[in-house]
Design a protein around this nucleic acid. Structure first.
Lengths: 229, 229
DNA sequence: TGAGATCTTCATCAAACCTTCAACGAAACG
DNA sequence: CGTTTCGTTGAAGGTTTGATGAAGATCTCA
């Protein structure tokens, strides 16, 4: 799993420094921009998960940046946390009107709060991977919460890649996946790997499935699928 | 396990009807209130797990209801999901400020999304025996009230972090937690520490568990879990 | 304030895991 | 049949990950 990317757009250096330090410490990947135009460039280049956006920026205001991010297909789902100076309450309304996801007033009393809000935002977006926690087909069970797969009730020890591969296949039995789909699903969309790598993982998976290996079927010329029925 | 209880507080009938139908279908027990005062009464009477709370209510505003729920000992841990009308986005800020756990903007585009949010909330708090003061598994007992853990009846002296770590893990045996979840649960949501710090606490915990160290299992690529069964 | 307890970070090591490659074999096609 | 295409297989680096010991920072409480 790749690191979560955060873009800080703020021209007040001390704030940027502290925030960047804290975020990096916590394992995030941090980018920065000091004005609106730079912000847009960075955002489109790095596609961050979260943008911490000051309202009061040189060149291009935060509100404008927000609008443009929202209108571009590649960045419209980016989480945006707006920062604005105290007292300018109308900013707040405007901020949300142009689609900010959260709003914090400067001066930031406590970095902890800001960090917490960033975390909260990220958590809120998560429910993408949340359908049906455990699924079961043909005696094979895949439980995401426990990160455990069982065959005929017996636990099978899978590696992360094998697990995600099986998880992907079993969730749409009968559907044939080509290798590039499987690379994206099981190894991560941002990995650059030869598609043949999937073959090797399939082999490892089949081996661990013993006599049930044939549930993972080969679709010649395409890729693989989980047996239907 | 008794059904999960959801209280819908909303005065717009069509929304209530649909939501209630969907929630019941999904196996929840549903209560409803059309204004703020009624909401408080119901909440204190039925102690729902989740309150879906409209901001804009007759008699008593959602914000006020939220505040009061949070200040009452019997309802202070209730999960609150706020609904606010589009255009009144500053409500969201206030909502979080008074302690809402999540918010969704009306009109609700998709009930699926709302349901997912509710589920996500519940999952975060999941431990169904969350309120149980003491829990026991595989010879290990964790007593929140006394802040004491015992193994095979023998008391084990744990630090606060170790205790909360064990407490988190043992309350959902088998469930795999990633490190960031464990940081939030054991060290506090407002701390920004390297996720690797968890490894060190786990080691300390295992050491104190002696021959039972293997009850805390490593889930490679994910994090840790408490052994199931 | 100071000593001890606790927390956090860091460097290092070994094991688990991933990826690539090349040789082999099985199906498809003329 | 021979050829070609494609999947399978075993093995060899290379990388990532968790365990561990130790040291510095921070907190706690007398």
């Amino acid at each position: 799993m790749s690191k979560t990317k955060v873009l800080i757009v703020e021209d007040y250096r001390p704030l940027v420094e502290t925030l960047e330090y804290q975020l990096k410490r916590a394992g995030y990947e941090v980018y920065r921009a000091a004005d609106g135009r730079e912000a847009l460039n960075q955002a489109k280049l790095y596609l961050p998960d979260v943008v911490v956006l000051d309202v009061d920026l040189p060149v291009l205001s935060g509100v404008e940046v927000c609008k443009q991010l929202r209108s571009d297909a590649t960045t419209k789902d980016t989480l945006i946390l707006m920062l604005s100076a105290l007292g300018e309450e109308s900013d707040q309304v405007v901020g949300f009107a142009v689609g900010a996801d959260d709003y914090v007033v400067k001066p930031v009393e406590s970095y902890k709060v800001l960090l917490q809000r960033i975390k909260a935002l990220l958590r809120r977006r998560e429910p993408s991977m949340d359908d049906a926690d455990a699924i079961s087909r043909c005696g094979v069970t895949v439980d995401r919460r426990r990160f455990v797969a069982t065959i005929e009730g017996e636990a099978v020890k899978l590696t992360k890649s094998e697990f995600r591969l099986l998880d992907t296949l079993i969730r749409q039995p009968g559907r044939a996946f080509d290798r590039s789909e499987l690379v994206d699903a099981a190894l991560g969309e941002d990995t650059m790997v030869l598609e043949r790598t999937i073959d090797v993982h399939v082999r490892a998976l089949r081996k661990k499935m013993n006599e049930h290996a044939d549930l993972v079927e080969t679709v010649r010329g395409i890729g693989y699928r989980f047996r239907e029925e």
